[in-house]
Simulated scan of single mutants.
Amino acid sequence: MEITGTAQHAAWQARALPPVEEVRSGLWSIPVPIPHNPLRYVSVHAFALSGGGLGLLDTGWQSEESWTALTGGLAAIGAAVPDVRGVLVTHLHVDHLGLAARVREESGAWIAMHPADVGVVAGLNASGATAAVAGEIDFLVGLGADREEAASDVGPPERMEAFTRMAVADRFLEDGDVADFPGWRLRAVHTPGHTPGHLCFAEEGTRLFFSGDHVLPRISPNISTGQRGAADPLRDFLDSLAAVRDLDVAEVLPAHEWRFRGLQSRVDALTAHHEQRLAELLDAIRSHPGSTPWDLAAHLTWSRPWEQYERRMRIFAVTETDAHLRLLASRGLVVSSGGPVPTWTLAVR
């Protein structure tokens, strides 16, 4: 894999925000910070449209700091929010969709997403923060969490407010659709896994591949189960990786970290990572039969000691463990006890 976003990579190493860059004629990368998050920023891409105006791919986290960075980045390229005609959103997470409503309010721009993620957003907005918190706590208890511990990790409804006030897209993009960005040929590639409706975009003229969170150069995206998620998200993710592996791509422009070349090798590395993870989880079940996903997560290797995991980090770890369990079950390698809090053992073969 070759790093092509050298300024982005240098800024990452310096723990700084990278510069606004014109990566191709009429195409800019604008870093928008994600407050209090190890991913640090999302790369919003701005496209100059033939006939005037701009198109945006993703928007950034819903915060004043992020809005200031987005508007400042647009000003740096001689533009402003009212110039935006349309917004493509790779997926429903707040660091990508969060500012879309504000952009639409100030510009009248349309917003396009895959219908699977639009349905999740609409459901969250309709339920409200209090119901969303209660549902997530119940889901974690169903994975083996103590209710008080789950409630502490999820936090109060105020923490969920931003997730239940996001923009509902007014346009749908299905796999193979071409986005309405005049002067560009951005073909939507449905890549479920990270979310049910995750979209990548292949620009047919330049052979640029906007990978969203599907393929990142340094880390594996979180693949988790959830109360509104897919039944087997890791299987979906691995299938989606295989679907993009052999695309004719000149450069990959992910939503985080840095641009790179070598899509095939990165897909192979991500696939191998999850197979190793599945093997580690099998060993944990062999050593600790009859364990819940909450228990099994503590026996896996993470980026720091398990005792340091809490709140959203612990939730992601447990729900990612559950996603791996579901794939092992679909392969016939493990079985669950059933019931309100299933436990897992190796299948008899």
Rank of each mutant, 00 (worst) to 15 (best):
H288F: 11
R286H: 11
A243V: 07
L92S: 06
A347C: 06
H214S: 13
D239H: 13
G51E: 08
R171I: 05
W258D: 12
A7Y: 09
H96A: 02
W294K: 03
A230S: 13
A297Y: 07
S220V: 12
S43L: 10
A101S: 14
G55K: 01
V81E: 09
A169K: 08
S337Q: 03
R159T: 14
D146R: 09
A101T: 08
A131W: 01
H198K: 00
D58S: 05
L186H: 06
L282G: 14
A269I: 03
R312S: 15
F316T: 10
F163H: 14
L327P: 09
A69W: 02
S66K: 02
I111R: 07
E158P: 15
L263M: 15
H96N: 08
I77R: 04
D232E: 11
P82G: 09
R102A: 11
L281Q: 13
R349H: 09
H256L: 08
M160L: 14
S25Q: 15
R24S: 13
D177E: 07
G60H: 08
R102W: 14
R228N: 01
G155L: 11
D283R: 15
R277E: 13
T271I: 15
A151V: 10
M160I: 03
A167T: 04
G197H: 01
L54E: 03
V335G: 06
Q227T: 00
A112N: 03
A202Q: 07
F181K: 06
G338F: 00
G338K: 00
L234I: 07
L216T: 06
A14G: 08
W12P: 01
I111S: 02
D58T: 01
V189Y: 04
S220K: 12
L346D: 04
P221F: 03
A298L: 08
V84M: 06
A255T: 01
S265D: 15
V87S: 00
G176Y: 08
A116E: 05
F201W: 10
R259H: 13
S240Q: 04
A167C: 07
R312L: 13
S224I: 01
P221Y: 04
W306F: 15
A317C: 14
T321Y: 10
H214K: 08
M313K: 07
I137K: 04
D153C: 10
R24A: 15
V154H: 10
S50M: 09
I77E: 06
R261I: 13
C200L: 03
H299P: 12
S287R: 13
F210V: 12
R312C: 07
E161Y: 01
A272M: 04
A250I: 08
L263S: 13
V141N: 05
I315L: 04
G193F: 02
E22L: 03
V42R: 01
P38N: 15
W28L: 01
R24Q: 13
M160R: 11
G338C: 05
